[in-house]
Simulated assay, not measured.
Amino acid sequence: MQPVWFPQDLAEDQSTKQVNKEPPATNLNYEPIQTAGFANWIGQDLDEFEKAYGQPEESMTSGFSFTINRYEVDDGLLEVNTKDKRIKSIKYLGENNDDIEPFKFGMTMDELSKITMVYPNFTIDYHDQSIDLELEEDDMNYRPLIAFDNGSFAILFFEQTQGESRLYAVDYLDSETLVKLAPYTVANDEVPYYKQERDVHWNKIDQFKKRQTSRLIQLLRQKNDKPAFSLDSQLQASSEDLLNTFDKDKEDILMTERLQELQRFEESEPGTFILNDTEMSDLLAELKDPSVSGHLELPVYDPSFSVLTLYSTPVLKEQLMRADDASLAVAFSKENVLILWKELESQAEESESH
């Protein structure tokens, strides 16, 4: 057999190919932008904030180690969460763009891209722990996260407006609030989380959060030129009964796998648990009223934050902004919330006639 001689430049070709196969770096670290607007107040003393914005209309402990302070704003929302009188987060929905510089209400994602990149990954240093957050596609399109150079963050809430998403609200928050709310996928196995306080009046807290939720939903409908939801005392009683039923008889509503999933959330796994359509139908079955639909979610520590998130989720926004006349009811049980909608009888009868 004769030896086969390969070209002498083969080694160079292989070396070149090997270099070309190395993937480009994709772990792009986020870059903070200059602190502006409400971001300057994060970590500051509440008394100083109130010198500029006045006293709150209402204040209530959340039951989870922070206090919610609501301030009067014309046709808008201004809520400040505090812990030991230090500002932890500021939620704002209004008309004054100076408070949210360099952003502007109504701006598009294209306009945002001229200010900063929208990053898919964030590593948050919290005490002695590094926590990795991952933004999914919907997060980047409707709830992007922005970092400031003073260590604070902002979640920008975008809504679908005539096929294009536009900024309608902003939540400024510190790293602890961001990590504990867990609005994005958390890659870590163990993360800090909110714990229920002892010796608090949960009935008062639940009533306060119910009002918060209803008020913000009605405000968003007003801004969309939709009629306000009517309030139905019978539907309200049903919402409280159904939430109590779920608390006591989860096994009758959830399959084994979903029950185990819920238990992981209740044992501090970050994220949100939401009843799917089948589970919600099972929960509503005892009402025997097809005109009632609902949304059950947990854990909800900050009701206004949760409503803003629902509104920036296209499928859920349709329910919040439904065109037909309907009644609204909201029930809270600590960190669990149930929202019910009931189609008005005139609408239901018309649907049946067709």
Rank of each mutant, 00 (worst) to 15 (best):
M1W: 12
Q14F: 03
Q18L: 05
V19G: 04
P24T: 09
A25Y: 09
P32I: 05
I33S: 01
I42M: 03
Q44P: 02
Q44V: 01
P56R: 06
P56M: 10
P56S: 11
S62F: 00
S65G: 06
I68N: 09
R70N: 12
V73K: 01
D74H: 12
T82H: 08
K88Y: 02
I90D: 02
I100Q: 02
D110M: 07
E111G: 00
E111Y: 03
S113Y: 11
K114V: 09
I115M: 10
T116V: 07
Y119L: 05
T123I: 12
D125L: 04
I131R: 00
L135H: 01
L135C: 01
L135R: 01
R143A: 11
F148T: 03
G151S: 12
S152W: 04
S152G: 08
I155A: 08
I155C: 08
E159F: 02
Q160E: 14
D171C: 11
D174P: 05
L178C: 10
V179P: 01
A182Q: 02
Y184N: 06
Y184S: 10
T185L: 14
V186Q: 11
N188M: 13
N188Y: 15
V191S: 10
R198V: 07
H201Y: 12
N203I: 08
D206C: 13
K210R: 15
R215W: 02
L216M: 15
L219K: 05
R221A: 06
P227H: 13
S230T: 13
S233K: 14
Q236Y: 08
S238D: 15
L243F: 07
D247Y: 15
I253Q: 01
I253G: 00
M255R: 12
Q260V: 03
E266L: 14
L275T: 03
D277M: 10
M280N: 13
D282F: 04
A285W: 06
A285I: 04
S291M: 10
S293Y: 06
E297R: 12
L298H: 03
Y301H: 12
P303D: 09
F305W: 06
F305N: 05
V307N: 00
L308I: 06
T309G: 11
L310M: 14
Y311H: 14
V315K: 13
L320H: 03
D325W: 04
V337H: 05
I339H: 02
L344M: 13
E345Q: 15
